[in-house]
Simulated scan of single mutants.
Amino acid sequence: MIAVGGRRRIVWAPSLGASDRVLTVLAVALSAAGLLLVWSATRMTGDHALLVRQAVAVAGGLVLMWLVSRVDLRVLRAYVPAAYVLAVLALAAVLSPLGVRVNGAHSWIVLAPGVRFQPSELAKVTLALAFAVPLGELRDGRRRPGFGGVVLALALAAVPIGLIALQPDVGTMLVFAAMVAGALLVSGAPKRWLLVLAAGAAGAGATAWQLGLVRPYQLERLLVLANPAADPGGAGYNAAQARIAIGSGGLYGKGLFNGEQTAGHFVPERHTDFVFTVAGEELGFAGAAAIVLALCALLWRGLSIARDSASPYGAVLAGALVSWIGFQAFVNVGMTVGLTPIVGVPLPFVSYGGSATVAGLVAVGLLQAVHRTKPMQP
């Protein structure tokens, strides 16, 4: 206990404990499964460049995961303002001539021929670190954030969300909204703020509609979700082919590298947004369920870390990270089986994509940093 301003409170300090080995094993196993599925999805092209790039991203992400897990949270906290500013500038750069459009969204920056960077993935990490500050650093003996802290957190989230809306990248916007909601819940903020968040999201959607930011193909995807049989050769093609591929796998699948639907290019983006179809067809229900269970186990470990955190800051940070990974996994799997609209979000740790892979593994490193931070002894 330390006396501050006449009050006594518990202070968390840089003493570090052991890593969560289960969390590490799950992240490594999912990344390895992703490499196999990406290899299977791209093998018919004869070009192994995608597999090599993904392997490099996984290796780099694992190194960063280990490095981040060894850093004291207070050290990370000191660099949060600079990281937030850099993330916002990178998102703004996407809208400049430096950015390129891929699959209808202006979300990428080309670093070199064949090498692209997606700033919104970096922004997920920095946003989790940033809004954990006003929600998790409590003063004057408070047990939950006050009005000013919640407003500041929402303001910090509004800037990157607004820039992503201009791309437009609906999937990433929804992930950010889920992160904010998860952080508010873990922080203990009054539930009315979730209603404010929902109202703000509805208002943002209406504004985007009025300004013409909602693309026709995005509206068509919502209509297909309401009526899966509509336009199977057009707007509903992706969803229809994804369900056919997964259904054809049966209980145990056709065997790794033996998928006909995915290898035959019937499923678009089968190595990125629709990589789960490769698991469903080649590994069957058993293999696909194993991936889902591994993700659920990872999320459970993350929630346990948030619950047992030595500091409110660590708890809110872990809550935001778990909300990001959990929501994104739910939407990705859901859109392959017709439960959610196709919004273009990758399956965490499994889909091809260097930026997303590295960001996801860094998020696991942050969860480890929260887990390893122990409270200062009285």
Rank of each mutant, 00 (worst) to 15 (best):
R101L: 12
D273Q: 10
D273A: 13
L222S: 03
V94F: 05
A123V: 11
V22S: 03
L23V: 02
E281A: 13
L256F: 09
A153R: 06
T24Q: 04
P348M: 04
A363F: 09
V88Q: 05
V186S: 01
L127M: 14
W300M: 03
A290M: 12
F276D: 06
A240M: 15
V214T: 11
V68H: 06
F117M: 11
A242I: 05
A240F: 15
D72F: 03
R139W: 14
V150T: 10
L317N: 01
G46L: 12
L298E: 07
W66S: 10
L51V: 15
S19L: 04
V11D: 14
G162D: 07
V175Y: 01
S311N: 12
E220I: 04
F276S: 15
G280D: 13
S31V: 15
V52R: 12
Q218N: 03
A363S: 14
T357W: 02
E121W: 12
A27Q: 01
G234I: 01
G259S: 06
A92R: 06
V150N: 12
G171C: 05
G141D: 07
L194T: 03
N238Y: 09
K191G: 14
A199N: 01
K254I: 08
A93T: 09
E220Q: 11
L195W: 15
G99S: 09
V71G: 02
T336Q: 01
P232N: 02
G253C: 11
A189K: 00
V316P: 07
M65S: 09
Q261C: 02
A363H: 10
G334I: 02
Q377C: 11
L111M: 01
P168D: 04
A356L: 00
G287S: 11
M173C: 15
A290H: 02
E282L: 13
G233R: 02
Y313H: 12
L129W: 07
A78T: 07
